[in-house]
């Protein structure tokens, strides 16, 4: 549905706003960095938000299609909550467990995601959440190598990442397929 909408949009709009979300992000960042929401600041932010995507458009590999911003916001809140929980649990493990008691293992996660942006977000999420760091990607991008600090069962870690994060990212980025 979003695909056909994108094609129906007038060509001029596409040329002026190649990345609408990037424009919004630039305006917000400009307002935060100058620390004011005065009309002048917003106007300058809008000018920057139009000019920067316009002139950097040739360098962007491709515009992601079918991206759902509102699901992304709810995903962000989930991740922030998980970061808080994860930090407390990792701090507890570091402070209380002896080195020999930690069962750290490699976990291999076969990926269903194919979009580069989605895989990047998944890897970042894994690094910031419970006791796991994403270490490497296989050469054609079908598996992700993850290191777990203290995991009883590597399969449980893999299943949790797949159901909790990957399924949601698939809904955000690749829901058509």
């Amino acid at each position: 549905m979003a695909e056909s909408q994108a094609q129906d949009r007038p060509k001029l709009m596409r040329r002026v706003f190649p990345h609408p979300l990037l424009t919004v992000l630039l305006i917000v960042v400009w307002c935060v960095i100058t620390n004011s929401v005065a009309p002048g600041t917003i106007v300058l932010g809008v000018i920057l938000g139009i000019l920067i995507p316009f002139f950097t458009y040739p360098y962007w590999p491709h515009v992601p299609r079918g991206f759902r911003p509102f699901k992304m916001v709810s995903y962000l809140f989930l991740v922030i909550w998980d970061i808080l929980v994860a930090n407390v649990s990792v701090a507890w493990i570091v402070l209380t467990k002896r080195n020999s008691d930690m069962r750290s293992t490699w976990v291999v996660i076969p990926l269903d995601l194919r979009t580069p942006e989605a895989i990047t977000l998944l890897a970042g999420t894994i690094t910031l959440t419970p006791g796991t760091v994403s270490a490497d990607l296989s050469d054609e991008g079908h598996c992700l190598l993850v290191h777990a600090l203290d995991a009883d069962d590597p399969n449980a870690v893999r299943d949790e990442i797949k159901t909790r994060y990957e399924a949601r990212l698939k809904e955000i980025f690749e829901y058509e397929s």
Binding site: W106, V108, P110, A135, D136, L137, S138, D139, E140, G141, H142, C143, L145
Partner: peptide, 17 residues
């Protein structure tokens, strides 16, 4: 670090390759 297990689907991990 410990050598990771080989990936099930592709040939090698990107860094080794």
């Amino acid at each position: 670090c410990e050598t990771p297990p080989p990936p099930p689907e592709d040939k090698v991990w990107a860094t080794r390759g």
